[in-house]
Deep mutational scan, measured.
Amino acid sequence: LETFPLDVLVNTAAEDLPRGVDPSRKENYLSDEDFKAVFGMTRSAFANLPLWKQQNLKKEKGLF
């Protein structure tokens, strides 16, 4: 999966995202380093959170 810089994904409308980016899964296009910096946890820890908590975190970080 291709990764993009944080500033390309945060608070970006679906139509302005790079081609192929799923707007409902912007976090998947962050590098592992950016993911950890944004969410303060690994991808696996994030995946283990309840869906509502994942969505709330994504909203807080501008990735929803």
Rank of each mutant, 00 (worst) to 15 (best):
F39P: 00
V10K: 10
L1M: 13
L63Y: 05
Q55E: 14
V10N: 04
D34R: 01
R43D: 00
D32W: 05
K61M: 08
F35Q: 00
K53N: 10
F35L: 01
K26E: 03
L9V: 02
D7T: 09
R19D: 15
L63D: 03
E60Q: 11
K59E: 09
T12L: 09
N48Y: 09
P50E: 07
L51C: 14
P18A: 03
G62I: 01
D22W: 02
G62N: 06
L30Q: 01
P23Y: 08
K26Q: 05
P50A: 07
D32A: 09
E60G: 06
L6H: 04
K36T: 14
V8C: 11
E33W: 09
W52C: 12
S31E: 04
L6T: 04
K61A: 15
V8Q: 11
Y29I: 01
L51S: 09
Q54L: 01
Q55S: 09
A47V: 10
T3C: 09
L9I: 05
L63Q: 02
N28L: 14
F4G: 03
A13W: 06
F35K: 00
Q55V: 14
A14K: 11
K58Y: 04
K61S: 08
D34A: 06
N48V: 12
A45S: 11
G62C: 08
T12Y: 07
D34Q: 07
K59G: 05
A13C: 13
A14C: 14
K59T: 09
N48L: 14
F4D: 02
K58N: 01
N11F: 06
L9F: 06
L49C: 03
D32S: 07
A14R: 10
D16F: 09
G40P: 00
A37R: 12
N11Y: 06
V10W: 05
E15D: 11
E2R: 09
E33L: 10
Y29R: 02
L49P: 00
V21H: 03
E33C: 08
V8L: 15
P5D: 07
A14Q: 10
G40R: 09
A14P: 14
V21P: 03
Q54K: 07
K53V: 14
L51H: 13
V21L: 08
K61C: 08
R25W: 08
P18W: 01
A37P: 00
N28M: 15
S31W: 01
E15I: 11
K58L: 07
K53L: 14
R19A: 15
L1P: 11
F64H: 15
L1V: 13
A37L: 14
D22M: 04
Q54D: 00
R25D: 03
D34F: 02
A14Y: 10
L9Y: 01
F4C: 06
F39M: 07
L30G: 01
F4H: 07
P23G: 07
F35W: 03
S31F: 02
K36A: 14
A47Y: 14
R19L: 15
D22T: 03
D16Y: 07
Q55H: 11
L49G: 00
T42M: 08
A47F: 12
W52Y: 11
V10R: 13
A45K: 10
R19K: 15
L17N: 04
N48F: 10
K58D: 00
D16C: 15
D7R: 08
A45F: 10
E27S: 01
K26P: 05
E15L: 06
F39I: 03
F35M: 02
F39V: 01
Y29V: 02
K53Y: 12
L1F: 15
D16R: 08
L17F: 07
D7S: 14
D34W: 04
N48R: 14
A13Y: 06
V8K: 10
N28W: 12
A45T: 12
L63P: 02
N28Y: 12
A37G: 09
F46K: 00
R25E: 05
L49F: 06
E33Q: 11
N56H: 13
S31H: 05
R43Q: 06
R43L: 05
V21Q: 04
R25K: 14
L63K: 01
G62T: 01
A45M: 13
L9Q: 02
N28Q: 15
Q54S: 02
V10S: 07
L1R: 14
N11M: 08
G40D: 10
A37C: 10
F64L: 15
P5K: 03
P23A: 11
Y29K: 03
P5R: 03
G62D: 05
L51W: 12
M41K: 01
A14D: 15
A45V: 12
R43M: 05
F35I: 01
K26L: 15
D16H: 11
V21C: 04
V10C: 09
F39N: 00
L57M: 12
N11A: 08
P5T: 07
L63E: 02
A45D: 13
F64Y: 15
E60S: 10
S31Q: 04
D16S: 08
P18E: 04
A13N: 12
E33S: 12
D34T: 07
L57F: 06
N11C: 13
L6W: 08
R25N: 09
L57K: 05
S44V: 13
S31I: 04
A37E: 12
L57Q: 02
K59N: 07
P50C: 06
F35R: 00
A45Q: 13
T12C: 10
P50I: 01
S31C: 07
T3P: 06
P18K: 03
M41A: 01
K36D: 12
A14T: 13
D34L: 04
T3E: 06
F46C: 00
K53G: 06
T42I: 08
N28R: 09
D16E: 12
F64W: 14
F39D: 00
K61H: 11
N11W: 07
L51P: 09
Q54H: 00
F64G: 15
Q54C: 01
L49R: 00
V21M: 07
T42Q: 07
N56D: 14
L51I: 12
N56L: 12
G62W: 03
T42F: 05
D7G: 09
L57W: 04
D16K: 10
L30N: 01
D32V: 07
V21I: 12
V8Y: 15
L30E: 01
L51M: 13
E33N: 10
Y29M: 03
E15F: 03
M41P: 00
G62Y: 05
P23D: 06
R25C: 12
K61Q: 08
E27L: 03
E27P: 02
T3I: 12
L17G: 04
L63G: 02
A47D: 09
R25F: 11
V38Q: 03
D34M: 06
G40C: 11
D7E: 14
K61N: 12
E2H: 12
D32R: 05
L17S: 04
K58I: 06
V10I: 14
N28F: 11
F4I: 08
Q54I: 03
S24V: 08
S31L: 04
D16W: 07
K26M: 15
E33T: 11
N48W: 07
